[in-house]
Design a protein around this nucleic acid. Structure first.
Lengths: 217, 217
DNA sequence: TCCGATAGAGAACAATTGTTCTATAACAAT
DNA sequence: ATTGTTATAGAACAATTGTTCTCTATCGGA
């Protein structure tokens, strides 16, 4: 069903993709014509018909700009701009999201993720992990931690916890036991620690961890 | 500049959003007319002009379906559908991406990520991590590993390595030393292992690791 | 060589679609 | 009452844009 594209048709698909990206809507036959240096609209139509037959595009007949790229544009699942509001390290409290944190005009750094990762949750922010103190949570130096503001969490959820006496942040799964709190590392081979409920302060729920390897582009 | 929308105009914006999601391209004035139960195209045009003045939409004059929703429209391109082609576990070779892997019609599972994460790289695929054997790479059971097909990697890059004699996959940073290969765990507190170059087979480059916490929606 | 499939060119046609013009009505402020 | 703004209607116009028809050219196989 899906064959290798000829140079011209590959060029057309690329052009449609680029056009959609720049303009937000698909090109007309004549847009493709001039964009790909084709002499006639009928030639464009000819290639589009072949592309549709091979399943590379989908067309709505008689509809202007009625071109879809299956898979790439079909689902408009949204992108979320997650503000990177600071870093997280063992020895310092994590930054608290302020009222202006989600202000797009704030000019902060943003991490773009799909709603599939945040699962539609609101008020997500990101922290960059500094140092190796989170290895027992299987989190490395440089990782991004996606957090959701929360002062309480359900049993078993991973949370950022401020240990008041130790003046330390840690990322652990929280289990409330009768009169103490069990803080369980993500790495289940490691031992949990137990804390007095009054000594801990939940600073947020961990939604996701994203680690990018290799040198930044 | 950005004011509260009247009921009718909110309905129009919602309709455009829904239409874009279903069809992959923006609606015409007449699509909006029938979709929102408006009696005249001029009324639609009137509302669209107001919406544009208020900055809620952007229009290209004289262009059919020339409507953009700022912020969401650009989301279309920079998303990548990464096919989840299998799982990775210590004792089994990782699946090899086939020629049909990137076939949209293949109906496989996809992980949607932004181009910011893949950094524009092509031929990315994803593997779900099975088991705890990758903890020394700070990778947990259930994590998603984004891979790029590669049979060689640069020094220091993280790769999926098949150890022929041991019949095991492992994720390690690869350093070629004079006559041996040093395989360094991501967790730098752990010791490297050394291998004969003829005993290893590089199966792919690790691009990113994504871990989602909490129960799936 | 002949033939069929593929690719391209040019022009005209017809449908789609954005725009504009004229009216009407409700409502608030002057 | 008058004026101005907002919202709605209907119709016609003009630009955009998809489709089709005819011709030509190349290339590989029967």
């Amino acid at each position: 069903m899906k064959s290798q594209l000829s140079a011209k048709r590959q060029q057309i698909v690329d052009f449609i993709l680029q056009f959609m990206g720049e303009r937000g809507y698909p090109p007309t036959v004549r847009d493709i014509q001039s964009g790909c240096g084709i002499s006639s609209t009928s030639v464009v139509d000819y290639h589009l018909k072949v592309l549709e037959k091979e399943g590379h595009i989908r067309r709505d007949p008689e509809v202007s700009r009625g071109i879809e790229l299956p898979g790439r544009a079909s689902a408009l699942t949204e992108k979320v701009q997650v503000p990177i509001i600071g870093q997280i390290a063992a020895g310092e409290p994590i930054p608290v999201p302020g009222s202006d944190t989600w202000d797009v005009a704030a000019g902060a750094d943003f991490l773009e993720v799909t709603a599939e990762i945040t699962r539609g949750r609101q008020d997500i922010y990101a922290l960059r992990v500094k140092g190796m103190s989170m290895v027992d949570a299987l989190i490395n130096d440089g990782d991004m931690v996606l957090m959701q503001y929360a002062s309480t969490v359900d049993n078993g959820e991973m949370a950022a916890i401020w240990l008041k006496a130790e003046k330390e942040v840690t990322l652990k799964k929280v289990y409330l036991e009768s009169d103490r709190v069990r803080l369980q590392p993500a790495n289940s081979q490691m031992q949990p620690i137990y804390a007095n409920p009054r000594n801990i302060e939940i600073q947020g729920r961990v939604i996701a961890v994203i680690r990018q390897l290799g040198k930044p582009a």
